[in-house]
Design a binder for these strands. Sequence first.
DNA 1: GGCCAGGACTCAA
DNA 2: TTGAGTCATGGC
Length: 297
Amino acid sequence: MADYFYLSQPPQFSFSECRWFLDRKYDECLHQTTATTVTKAVLLDGQPTVLTISEKATQLLVQVVHGQPSEEAILTFIREWFDLDTDIFAFYEQLQQDADLSFLATDYYGLRLMGIPDLFEALCWCVIGQQINLTFAYALKRRLVERWGEKLTVEHRAYYLFPSPERLAALSVEELRALQFSTRKAEYIIGIAQLFSTNSISKEQLQQLPEAEIFNRLTAIRGVGEWTAQYVMMKSLRLPNSVPYGDVGLYNALHHIKQFEKRPTRQKLDEFFQPFEGWKSYLTLYLWRTLAQAIKE
DNA sequence: GGCCAGGACTCAA
DNA sequence: TTGAGTCATGGC
C-alpha cells in the first residue's frame, strides 16, 4: 500500500528526456530505470526511502515504495532533483540565436538539469570521476556504494543509499585501494567524508554564501579543483552559471558542434558562454547531452 | 602497446 | 603564477 503523490509538470519539461538522461549507457547504481519509470533510494526526513517516478497524463506520479517520510520532504526532493521550479523558456530563446545550437532546444526539448541534491555524494562522485574514463568511474562508484551504502530491498530488488560521511570517514586508504581506488582518490574521499561528518562543511552552510566564496570554500578542500567545484555548484548547489573548465566532455562537444580546438582557451570558452549569462549551467548540460546522441537511436 | 580518460597536487623557477 | 612532472588504472 504505497503512498503516492502527483506533481504538475512545468512548461518545457519532458519526463522522457529526463528519464533517458538518467539511463545512459553507464552502469548507474544510485537509481534504476525502466522504459517509463525511475526508481531511487534517498534519505528523506532521516528515513531511508525509495521513490518511483513516472508520468501519468500531464502529471508526474511519485510512488513511495519504501519508507514514510513527509509529503513535503518527498515533493521538495523531486522538485529539486528534476529542477521543476526553473522556467527554461529564456534559455531556449537564447539557443535560437545561434544557428549551431538551436537544435539543442528541439532535439532535447524538456531536458532538465538532473541534480545531485546530496553535496557529499556530488563531491565524492567528482573525485571518483577525476581523470579516469566514465565506465571505470561508474564501476568504482558501484563498488563503494554496494560495500558501504545502506541497502534497501523492495520487491526483491536492491536499492542503495550513498554511503554516509560517517561511514566513509572511518575507512582506511587501504580499504579503498582494495576496490581499485588510487591512493589519491582514497585520501580525497576520506578527507571529504571527515569534513562532512564533523560538520566542517555542509550544503546549508555554503548556500548562505556568495558564489565567489562558495568557490573558495570548495577549492580549499583537498582534492577539489576548479572542475569539481564548478560541477557541484551546478549539480548540487544549482547555481545557474557554472562552467566546469577543463572538462573533456565539454571540449569534445564544442569540438563537434563549433569546431573548437580539442582544448580551447579559457578566453574562447568565456566568449562562447557569454551570451548565455544565467544559463551557462544549462548550456553545459545540453552540450554533455549531445555526447550521447548516437546511443539514443 | 600507447594514448586517453567528465583532474588535482606538488614543486621549481 | 605558470609550467612540467606525478599519480593511477581501466578502456579502447
